[in-house]
């Protein structure tokens, strides 16, 4: 059982494998849109998904080396969130006040975690598990747990999927009524087990979403 208090402040936003070096992806906290990016050196950073210049989503941007750039005007931000360069004024050193809001980001068990809290403790541990896939599911946590036949504890569902021991981590997708679900399976699973689990996840989603539409009791 994971400590619940840390589950409340650290949110699993993506799988490490889905965020290669020098790339940026959109992600969510319950109440904030994020751009999560990995520098060339492997460091993961999370920032508010909004360039302070003209409001463009930074998750549409690009990563060169150790900086994230906005796709609109190329404003470049470092890991601290500080604006490093404004291409329209190449000779200018941007004032320190130009920065994008940052969040704490960390990786563990193949999962990227983000928190808005400065006080958040250790990143939740899911020893023995490894992140396999992230999907969105238009169903409630209770419905999803019922469809799996698993046990729901906070934002974690434990059970078996495709014959493999599995754990589902639930987070906000940013869309009402839609969950972001990270499927974790036993870290030693073979490829055949991974494929079975992935296909079973598709079936689980169909079942939970169909039950949601037909109004079947969770």
């Amino acid at each position: 059982m994971m400590p619940l208090e840390s589950a409340l402040v650290w949110t699993p936003v993506a799988l490490s494998a889905d965020l290669p070096a020098a790339s940026v992806i959109p992600a969510r906290l319950a109440d904030a849109a994020l751009a999560v990016w990995r520098a060339q050196d492997g460091t993961v950073s999370a920032v508010a998904d909004r360039c302070p210049h003209r409001g463009m989503r930074l998750s549409h941007g690009f990563v060169r080396g150790e900086a994230l750039s906005c796709i609109y005007h190329g404003w470049r931000y470092g890991k601290s969130g500080r604006c490093l360069a404004i291409p329209a004024h190449p000779a200018l050193t941007p004032p320190e006040t130009i920065r994008v809001a940052t969040y704490r980001a960390a990786e563990r068990d193949g999962i990227v975690w983000v928190t808005a809290s400065q006080e958040a403790g250790a990143v939740p541990a899911h020893d023995g598990f490894l992140g396999l896939r992230s999907v969105t599911v238009a169903a409630s946590p209770a419905r999803l747990a019922a469809s799996l036949g698993g046990t729901l504890d906070g934002s974690v569902i434990d059970g078996t999927i495709g014959g493999v021991t599995a754990r589902l981590l639930l987070a906000s997708s940013g869309e009402e009524g839609v969950l972001l679900v990270h499927l974790l399976i036993a870290s030693g699973a073979a490829d055949a087990g991974k494929i079975a689990a992935s296909r079973a996840l598709e079936g689980l989603r169909r079942q939970a979403e169909t039950a949601t539409i037909t109004g079947e009791a969770a």
Partner: peptide, 13 residues
Amino acid sequence: IHRLHELKPDPHE
């Protein structure tokens, strides 16, 4: 579909 600007180094670096 925008250019993958990350494929080129930053010209002002």
